[in-house]
Structures are given as C-alpha cells and as structure tokens.
Design a protein around this nucleic acid. Structure first.
Ligand SMILES: NC(=O)c1ccc[n+]([C@@H]2O[C@H](COP(=O)([O-])OP(=O)(O)OC[C@H]3O[C@@H](n4cnc5c(N)ncnc54)[C@H](O)[C@@H]3O)[C@@H](O)[C@H]2O)c1
Ligand SMILES: NC(=O)c1ccc[n+]([C@@H]2O[C@H](COP(=O)([O-])OP(=O)(O)OC[C@H]3O[C@@H](n4cnc5c(N)ncnc54)[C@H](O)[C@@H]3O)[C@@H](O)[C@H]2O)c1
Lengths: 256, 256
DNA sequence: CGCGATTTGTGCACGTCTTCACAAGCGCCT
DNA sequence: AGGCGCTTGTGAAGACGTGCACAAATCGCG
C-alpha cells in the first residue's frame, strides 16, 4: 500500500497507534522470527534476507515476507531487513516493550521447573508471584520469590498489574483457579492442566498439553509404520501415494 | 460413504488396515476428544451425543462430527456415539494400542518435572529411559528409573523399541541430541528447547515453546489494551467492531 | 406398523492460510 | 547516468479448514 508508514514506531509514546490486525497464523509465527532475529543479532548480522531469516525460523520465505508485510514495509529491496529495526517492530507489535507480569499458580512438580526457568525473563516476562493452595508450600522460597497462598491473589493483583496467569495445578483445580484469575482481572491464561477451561468472553486461554503432543506424534508413528508395512502387498487401493507428507504444524525434514 | 465399515477394528491383528488419512487439524483434535471421552466413561456415561462431546472438548459440534466421520461411521443416528467404542477407535487410530516407549534426554530442571509426571503413563506412554550428558547426573534415580549417559543411547535403543524422543536440553545441545536420536532410529521428536531442529525427511518434530505461548498472549493483551484505550476518541477508522474476537487456536469464552 | 423426536453424516459456501511467480524498487558497478 | 543483479512486497490461485443447514437414519412409543 502506501510506502514508508510507521504503524507504531516504538519510540512514539502517547496515542495508541492502532495495531494492524494480523492474521492469527502470523501472530503465532512472529515469536519464532523474533527468536531467530535475536540469534542473528548476537551473531553480528546487521541485515538479513527473507531467505536467510526464513531458513533460521524454519518456514517458507514467501510466508515470512507476507507475514512481515502485515507489519508495514520494513525491508529494503535488494538488501533485506535491518535486524535491529525488525526486532524493535516485532517486539512492539507483540506488546513486549513493557515487561509483562506473570502469576504462576500451582508450584508443584511442573511449577517448580517453570519458576526456575530463565527463559521467562529473557523473553520479555517477569514472574511476579508464585501461588499455591497447599499450606506446606506457602512460604517456600524459589529463585528469590516466596510462594504465597492462592487466596492472596487479590492482594497480589492490587500490588502488581498482572498481565498473564499460568495454571500449573492438577486438572481438577484448574477451572477454579481460572475463575480466581479472571476475578482479579487477568485476561490471558496459559493452562498446563489437561482440561478445557471456560472463561468469559474477552479472556484468552492457550493450553499446553504434553500428552496431546505425544499422541499426535504417536499417530504419525502409527501411520508411518502402516505405510512401510506394505512393501509389495497388492492390497486395496493405496495406489500412488507419491510423497506421503505429514507436516502441518509438525515441522519436518529441513535439509541442510 | 459406505455404511458400516471397519477401517481397523482394534481386535483384528495381521494385515495392516490402511489408516484413513486424516486432515492434520483432525489429528490434533482427536486427543482432546479422547480425554473428554475418558472423563465421560469415568462418569458412567455409555453414550454421548456430538453436542455433548463437543461441549466437553470445547469445540463446535459440526466440526466434531466431521472429524469423527473421517474415522468411519461409529455413531448411531438418534442416539449418539458409544463411548467405549469411540475410545477404542480413537486409540487405535492414534496408535495407542501399543504403549509407546519414550526416551527423555536432558534431565535438568524441566526434565525432572517430566520424569515425575504421571500423565505419561496414564495417556499411553512409558518413559523407557532418562538420559543426560552431565556425569554428575548419571546414576541418579528418579521415579524408579536411573539416569544414563546420553552416549548409551545406542544401547538403550537396542534394548527397547524407542518410539519417541523428548528433548529437554538447552537449545545449544538440542540439534546434536536430535541427530543422536535420529541415528538410533527415532522418527518422532518432541522438542522443548527453543530452537529449530533440522532432521531428515520422514522424521516428525513437534515443539513446545513456553515463551512463544506467552508472547502470543502478550500480543492479544496489547491488542485488547489498544482497543479499550479508545473509548470516545473519534480517531481513524475503527468504526463498528461488533465482537472483536480473537480466538483461533486460542480457545475463548465458552459460556456455562 | 407407522410416526415423530432425535441425532448423525455431509454437501456446500465461505473464510483463512499457503505458495508461486513476478513486477517494482534498491544499491552497486561501470 | 545507466544498466544489472538482487530482494522485497503482493496479486492470484489453490489447498485447507470451518460451520451451516438439512436429508437420511435410528429409536421409542402408541
Ligand atoms: N509435571 C509435568 O511434567 C507436567 C507436564 C505436563 C502437564 N502437567 C500438568 O501440570 C499440572 C501440574 O502438574 P504437576 O506435576 O506439577 O502436579 P503437582 O501435583 O506436583 O503440583 C500441583 C500443585 O498445584 C497445587 N494446587 C492444587 N490445587 C490448587 C489450587 N486450587 N490453587 C492453587 N494451587 C493448587 C498443589 O498444592 C501442588 O503444589 C497438572 O495438571 C499436570 O497434568 C504436568
Ligand atoms: N524449565 C522450564 O520450565 C522450561 C520451560 C520451557 C522450556 N524449557 C527449555 O527446556 C530446556 C531445558 O530446560 P531446563 O530448565 O531443564 O535446563 P537445565 O539446564 O536445568 O537442564 C538441561 C539438562 O540437559 C543436560 N544436557 C546438556 N547438554 C546435553 C546433551 N548434549 N545431551 C544430553 N543432555 C544434555 C544438562 O546436563 C542438564 O541436565 C531448555 O532448552 C529450556 O529452554 C524449560
């Protein structure tokens, strides 16, 4: 469209610059580009072509260009993208210019691992509170943070502006915890418990379910096995089957 | 299409029953249906309607019916689906009739949590080995399993038929570990390290990246904030905006 | 046995996502 | 200044996924 627009230069404060509304699929890939860009920046690259960046992020280069074009025109034809500028832009769009506060509820097996994870801090987040319902866990100090009782959530929310709640409790408690989070104004939840949460409109929930990932892989194992198991059996149908691809979300086979 | 087919009744051994090739989106939802079905079975339900099951799984009922129709015709019009039969069918398709062996590489912070997770066993998997490169970790016993050195991988693979490798090492080591897994015949990998893996064709990789999930949520927070920040500012465009949805992969706002 | 209530399975239309292919733009070199 | 090679940004086409709406099928009951 128009040439050098600046939909939201990170330097500009004041009026909200009307985020371009990105396709959801694009939003899901921006963090991957961002990670690749940080790696490139650390390696000393000042610019990168769509080909180079797409390889680093494991996607098709046309897709990458279309994704980035939604943010505006930040590339230079014949040259590529300015790494630092692109990092700035993506971080702005993702809302990472402010370090967002995360409340982690459920400091058990998994919760401990998450609480000790440095990838939070290095990727734009800050664990603002650790919460648990078990009195014997309350008071424990992990990584400089003291575990508080989950009923203190309103107090915590009053102290900090919580952006995201992470649920790492057993499935049976997850809905109740979600309700508590919503009640104190949290509108984004990451759920590790294997269950469906119901939340009011306007609240976003994303889930991470390890078993689901394994089961999807299991399916592909099963499928691969059932294909290789027919070497010369002239059974029913199954004629051509030229490529027999699988990938979609699954990344697959990137040469080099 | 045809009426009562049995593309692969779980009882039948012998010839491989030619898996129907399912849309990837369907495959990704089957595990969710399976979980919901197990819950229903535990609650004593013998049958369930597409409406009921779809509500329990958090999806649209038409989508659920279309998904299930890809497996064959296992419902009864006017009645619904037989819970036990459907569980059998989905488990068969997902390849869960055999308990698959998982090798977990990287027994650090996260690896410990995974090793102690009972969701593996209860959802069709068995941790067959814990592996780490750190000599001081080798020999440690977790949950009845002894941590072995990652260089023992060939030995482990010879003892067990490894179906899936899980990588929970730092990003810097992940590619090397992936290569080692592929070398011993593993064709499905679940990667927790924040990096792109390159693997030969035919090997499936799925990744779980916590920071990406948080950044996607951050984007939606940012977007929501930039919308509510314009209450009466007759700025540019942004006229109607009736619903202002967001969900796609993000589940959102299911009443009740 | 027939009828109405119920629920599945699916044709169809629509929207989203991906990929190709190429014109437009940029920098560099002569 | 002009031309050349490289890379972006995007139109268009196709693949894929979604959801409505309804015909077909089944059950229970009178
Ligand atoms: N451990 C893993 O590797 C892993 C992997 C994937 C998913 N998960 C899921 O993550 C969740 C946590 O797993 P875990 O292994 O850490 O379990 P866990 O039992 O070790 O820890 C759960 C914690 O939640 C706390 N809790 C219970 N009810 C609560 C409530 N109402 N409010 C606040 N805290 C409450 C408990 O006191 C406990 O500390 C489970 O749903 C599990 O299925 C775990
Ligand atoms: N801790 C979390 O909650 C969390 C969450 C999301 C993602 N991750 C990612 O998971 C990975 C592991 O995180 P962590 O916190 O457990 O780190 P960690 O440092 O605690 O553990 C890593 C383990 O891998 C082992 N290791 C290193 N190189 C190896 C090799 N070549 N072969 C085998 N083992 C090797 C180390 O000895 C160590 O035991 C990281 O990539 C991290 O980014 C962690």
């Amino acid at each position: 469209m128009s040439q050098h627009r600046h939909p939201g230069a990170p330097g500009r404060a004041g009026a909200v610059p009307a985020l371009p509304d990105l396709p959801e699929a694009t939003v899901a890939r921006l963090p991957e580009y961002l990670r690749a860009l940080h790696n490139l920046a650390d390696a000393g690259h000042e610019t990168v072509s769509s080909e180079g960046l797409s390889a680093a992020a494991g996607v098709n280069s046309a897709k990458l260009r279309k994704d980035l074009s939604h943010l505006g025109s930040y590339g230079t034809r014949g040259v590529g993208y300015d790494v630092a500028l692109l990092i700035e832009q993506i971080e702005y769009v993702l809302g990472l210019t402010q370090r967002r506060a995360v409340a982690l509820v459920g400091v058990g097996n998994l919760g401990h691992a998450l609480a000790g994870y440095d990838g939070f801090a290095s990727r734009g987040f800050r664990i603002a509170a650790l919460l648990d319902a078990d009195p014997s866990r309350v008071g424990e100090e992990i990584n400089g943070l003291v575990v508080r009782h989950v009923d203190d959530l309103p107090t915590v929310a009053a102290e900090e502006s919580l952006a995201i709640g992470v649920i790492a409790t057993p499935a049976g408690a997850a809905q109740q915890v979600a309700d508590q989070l919503v009640a104190v104004g949290v509108t984004s939840i990451l759920n590790f418990a294997p269950c469906v949460l119901s939340v009011p409109e306007g609240v976003d929930v994303r889930k991470v379910d390890l078993a689901i990932e394994l089961q999807i892989l299991s399916f592909h194992e099963h499928r691969k096995a059932s294909l290789t198991a027919l070497p010369a059996t002239g059974g029913t149908a199954l004629t051509a089957l030229p490529g027999g691809f699988a990938a979609t979300d699954t990344q697959e086979a990137i040469g080099t």
